[in-house]
Design a protein around this nucleic acid. Structure first.
Lengths: 156, 156
DNA sequence: TTCAAACAGTTCCATTACGAACAGTTCTAT
DNA sequence: ATAGAACTGTTCGTAATGGAACTGTTTGAA
């Protein structure tokens, strides 16, 4: 009994740790998104897309995990703001190819330079870890993700 | 330049890993919350409160990171559903002491037994890690949290 | 003592997020 | 060739979210 309880306390601590990190990320993202007059999904899309310069909407969905309705509206906003271009994919008219515009590239440069951005915060965090700590962290998280995804599948 | 780019790719990977874990957590929580006819905040409050049986609303806020408006409404819902009792703290009438009711305890037992709950999923995840992996993970994340919180403070 | 500031929680409301139904496109099997 | 299944993205309506202004309580300084 006491062993079971210990086990559940340990797992609750881990869950709480992730919950806490996530809270920090959301706060930082929200603030920096607002500073650049973007919504959170728009900001997330922009920093995901920018390093590749172009991606399909489908790929962006996979990378950011946003439900497609949210995705669609965020993309619409970015297109309206002329930060990205949206064109049907050459040989598959269902898919949309999203391309960073010059204006979008400029904004991304600005975002990258902002001291308070999530990107900068995570660079500091990454730098503070040793090579081994970093690798182990990613490995452990990879493992946890696999198990959580199994749990998701099991539940549906 | 190439070094800088490497550094930013490394940190983006880490950010994405956290984002991914978080997405899994939210999906599982959302499903299991719904199964028990609770909203996400209500579910989160319940599993946070239950191990302690009673907590002030303020403490729950600190533990779950919900903004107080969200907190207030989630608590109201739990009180309406008679899962918890809410009473002013003896010697400080500003604070509310929240106590798990018998009905709440019953629901929590049910939640704990559900194979698909976040709690179970995280128990599996915790079990899959070695002692050292677990400790290192928490240590690294603790370190990251500290840096992110500094970034938050810096930004406001 | 009294008044202002800090605090805990509530209420209100504008914004955001997301599921579900939908439209158009492509693939597959017959 | 064609029907139907699977897919990509859009639209719409509902519900959740969280900031700001509020009420009542406590603290502390003059």
């Amino acid at each position: 009994m006491s062993l079971e309880k210990d086990a559940s306390i340990r797992s609750e601590k881990l869950l709480h740790s992730f919950w806490h990190v996530n809270h920090c990320i959301r706060r930082i993202v929200q603030r920096t998104a607002l500073e650049n007059e973007l919504t959170i999904p728009q900001y997330a899309l922009l920093i995901t897309l920018a390093p590749f310069e172009e991606m399909t909407q489908k790929q962006l969905g996979k990378a950011t995990f946003f439900p497609k309705s949210t995705l669609s509206q965020a993309v619409e906003g970015l297109v309206q703001a002329e930060l990205i271009q949206r064109n049907p994919v050459e040989d598959n008219r269902r898919e949309m190819l999203l391309t960073l515009s010059d204006k979008g590239q400029l904004l991304y440069n600005k975002i990258q330079s902002q001291e308070s951005s999530v990107l900068k915060a995570f660079e500091l965090a990454t730098d503070s870890l040793s090579e081994k700590q970093y690798d182990d962290l990613l490995t452990s998280q990879r493992q946890i993700i696999t198990l959580l995804e199994e749990a998701i599948e099991r539940g549906e």
